[in-house]
Amino acid sequence: MKVAFRIWRQDNPNEKGGFKEYQVDNLNADMSFLEALDHLNELLVLRNEKVVAFEYDCREGICGQCGVFINGRAHGPHDNVTTCQLHMRSFQDGETIVIEPWRAKSFPVIKDLIVDRSAFDRIIEQGGYISAKTGTAPEANAIPIGKEISDRAMDAAACIGCGACVATCKNSSAALFTSAKINHLNLLPQGQPEAYRRVIEMTAQMAKEGFGHCTFTGACEVECPEGISITNIAEMNARYFKAKIFS
């Protein structure tokens, strides 16, 4: 299998950057997309060129570190899949594949396809936790939690923090990410004491980081590898109003 990779190359945050095209041969359909990029990088090394910088770690769709724009879509042509779970069988022989980093003001490019998503960490730091110290926990079964609630919390907790929701949103909104964390914790009894504070402080940080507002286009849930529903955003908004009134 042979393809042309048209890849965004940018040496550092201050450089302008631009596309560069690479012909790559000897690929096979069972290779993962990132393995095809590994293959390209080996060719580049042997040609004495700098490798394409891109991110990955677990390569099994769960760590959230990988993520690029492929042919105009976050994580490539399929719905709800991470870049590392994409295989070359999803492309045509001879196809030109355009690869770009996540594009969002709050995710500045570090190099080539690597962006800085530390804004997500800073949102979590503003209340994406339960303030209880190690050693203070009551017996686990002391507080029963109904399966329905527990399952909904689990659905929201599934977020891997890859940033595809932001990258694909025309407003670069982080509402899906932030709402998933808020709802996960605010649904659970353990999350109640800080429920109002959490929603107010995390959404404030989201704004401070420069993410745009959600205009409910639904683009994010299509790309989210965990299929997190945009109903989470509506739920976050409801929680926000409630917190504003009662806190």
């Binding site: 209880a132 009551p138 017996e139 079964n141 939690i145 527990s150 919390a153 689990m154 353990q190």
Partner: peptide
């Protein structure tokens, strides 16, 4: 440890009655 993680908000699988 299970007590600890439950307190930290880990959504462990539960029965309908609410126990783990």
């Amino acid at each position: 440890l299970i007590d600890h993680f439950t307190q930290q908000g880990v959504p462990f699988a539960r029965e309908y009655g609410g126990v783990l």
